[in-house]
Structures are given as structure tokens and as C-alpha cells.
């Protein structure tokens, strides 16, 4: 089995699939970093040449004053306290809140890329992993070896999982290194709010907690990795079912884009929440944005995605093992 996986990884690497994906990531991350950099510049100009530390110190004093005054609700008080903690952290660690460090960039990048960017990169590798063998005819050589068909498909799937993991890790590293050059590498321990839940359209802050940024990023990348595997598995199935790589890419792309459009439309279409593409925005749950269909939770979405992936795997294997190859 190890030898088979070795074969599949060799093919993915020698076909330059991983290089292409890494190149795309490097170019786009640089682009996003530059955009972010311009945004920061604009804000600094707006503030003028006042030292940001003075401004921040003033803000903390203001907030503390408001906390001591009576007549504000407990909930509001809690939020203000969190804000003070955050601002104090920035001051203590000499971080300008308007000028994010690399970890902040990585955090928001992961959040934005989970619904389209990451699935797209995964598709590049996954969509042709079986169909390219079929269109090139090499599948005939592969399937006439003294190896059972399910083993061949499994080795391809394991190679895909490895590639996905490499891509997700490299995405994090590239985002950190490239943005770090511009924004500095500090800020791992910046406090981040999470635990928002929305019930009936209203933000519920009762479970809100403050965690370190590195913990938050770790959770985000866990979710990105999970989404990448689900999208990879679905592309894998299409790659088994469709003979042409472009067809399987097209179908997957259509589904992903439909998911983006539907997410803004379906709040009253309850059963849409069982579609996989509506459930891809897992990092949104961490950040506290409201889900496309009310009532969806992080666990629900993970469950729906897992079911889709399991079915896709089942279909892939049962078709591939029985299929006549012409």
C-alpha cells in the first residue's frame, strides 16, 4: 500500500499540480497583503501624526470611566471589559491595533478563503486524480496489475488527503511569512472574541470568551482542513464518475458558486441547509456571523459535510470497483 501511495504522490508532484497550487497561493496572498497594507496606510494618514499609544491610552481611560458609572446593563459592562482587556494587550505588547501583525492577517485570510479560495485550490488537485488516468488511457495499465482495484483507488484517496494537508499547512505558512514581512510577525497572543451564537436573528453573547489569537487560528485551520477534505472528497467522486477533468471541475465550481449565491438567498428555504455548499462557511461560526439559514450551528454543518463526504466516498469506491473500462 505504501508503494502505491508513493506512486500517486509521485504523479501529483511530477504533474506539477502542487507547484501550481503553491504558486497561486503565493501570488494571491501577496496581492491580499498589499491590499491590506494600503488600507492600513489610509488609516494612519487619517489619524495624522498623533502617536497611536497616546490615543489608545486615552481610549482605555474613557472605557474604564464608563465602566464605573452606574446605569449600564451587565451585558454591556461585560463587553466593555473585554474591550479594555484587548486594548490593554495591544498597549502592553506595543502593537498598533490599526496595524495588524501577520497572525491577524492569517486569521482573517483563513476566514475569507474557506468558502471559495481553498475549495478552488483543492479542486485543482482532486478533479483530475482519477479522470486524467482515464482520459490519458493509463488507467488500463493501472488496472491490469496484480493489485485489487479498491487498493488503487484507496492509494489515490490517501495521496489526495496528503496533498490537501500539505496545501492547508503551506497556505498558513505562506500567509504568515508573506504578510509578516510587511506587518511584522508578532501578535500570536492577541485576545480574540469567540463563542457568539445567534438565536432567532439576535446575537447571543452569553458564551462569548476571550482566547489567544493562536488558539483561534488553530481552530480556524482545523475547520479549513475539514472543509478542504470534504470538497476534495466530493471532487474525487466527480473525478471517478466523469471521464473528463474539465467536466468534473466545472460541476464542482458551479456547485461552489451556487453555494455563495444561495447563502445570501435561502434564509427562508429551510431544507437548503442540507446542501453541502451552504455549509462550507465553518469559520463564520467562530467569528459570530449569522448563518445562511437560521438555526444552523457549527456542529450541524460539520455533520452535514461529513455525511456528504461519506456518501461520496461510498459512491466512488462502489463505482470504481465495478466499472467496465473501455
Amino acid at each position: 500500500m505504501n508503494k502505491l501511495i508513493h506512486n500517486e504522490m509521485l504523479k501529483i508532484i511530477r504533474k506539477r499540480k502542487l507547484i501550481v497550487v503553491i504558486a497561486i497561493m503565493a501570488v494571491l496572498i501577496s496581492l491580499f497583503t498589499y491590499a491590506q497594507f494600503r488600507e492600513v496606510q489610509r488609516q494612519i494618514e487619517k489619524l495624522g501624526d498623533v502617536d497611536w499609544r497616546t490615543t489608545l491610552q486615552q481610549q482605555i481611560v474613557d472605557t474604564q470611566n464608563r465602566l464605573t458609572s452606574s446605569g449600564i446593563s451587565d451585558e454591556w459592562k461585560a463587553q466593555l471589559q473585554i474591550r479594555v482587556q484587548q486594548q490593554q494587550y495591544y498597549l502592553d505588547n506595543n502593537i498598533n491595533p490599526a496595524e495588524p501583525g501577520a497572525p491577524t492577517f492569517v486569521r482573517s485570510f483563513a476566514q475569507e478563503s474557506i468558502t471559495l479560495f481553498v475549495p478552488l485550490l483543492i479542486m485543482i488537485v482532486a478533479a483530475d486524480i482519477v479522470s486524467s488516468e482515464r482520459s490519458a488511457g493509463t488507467v488500463k495499465l493501472l488496472l491490469t496489475r496484480p493489485v485489487k482495484r479498491w487498493k488503487i483507488l484507496l492509494s489515490k484517496y490517501v495521496a489526495l488527503l496528503l496533498s490537501i494537508s500539505i496545501i492547508v499547512v503551506l497556505m498558513g505558512l505562506l500567509a504568515y511569512v508573506i504578510s509578516g514581512v510587511v506587518f511584522g510577525f508578532g501578535g500570536w497572543k492577541a485576545p480574540i472574541l469567540t463563542g457568539f451564537t445567534s438565536i432567532g436573528g439576535e446575537l447571543n453573547t452569553s458564551h462569548v470568551q476571550l482566547i489567544d489569537q493562536w488558539q483561534y487560528i488553530l481552530m480556524e485551520f482545523g475547520l479549513v482542513w475539514f472543509v478542504a477534505i470534504v470538497v476534495g472528497t466530493l471532487s474525487f467522486m466527480l473525478s471517478v464518475l466523469l471521464k473528463s477533468t474539465s467536466a468534473s471541475m466545472g460541476v464542482m465550481l458551479a456547485a461552489l458558486i451556487a453555494g455563495l449565491i444561495l447563502s445570501n438567498l435561502v434564509s427562508s428555504w429551510q431544507s437548503a441547509k442540507y446542501l453541502f455548499m451552504i455549509n462550507l462557511d465553518l469559520t463564520g461560526y467562530l467569528a459570530g456571523s449569522s448563518p445562511p439559514v437560521p438555526g444552523m450551528t457549527l456542529l450541524f454543518s460539520i455533520g452535514v459535510l461529513a455525511v456528504w463526504a461519506v456518501i461520496a466516498l461510498f459512491v466512488s469506491f462502489s463505482v470504481f470497483v465495478r466499472q467496465d473500462v473501455y
Partner: peptide
């Protein structure tokens, strides 16, 4: 049919 091998290897 034709011996289809991996052209990039």
C-alpha cells in the same frame, strides 16, 4: 490499444 504511459515521467 496504444501503450499509454505517463508522458511527464
Amino acid at each position: 490499444e496504444n501503450p499509454e504511459l505517463y508522458p511527464y515521467l
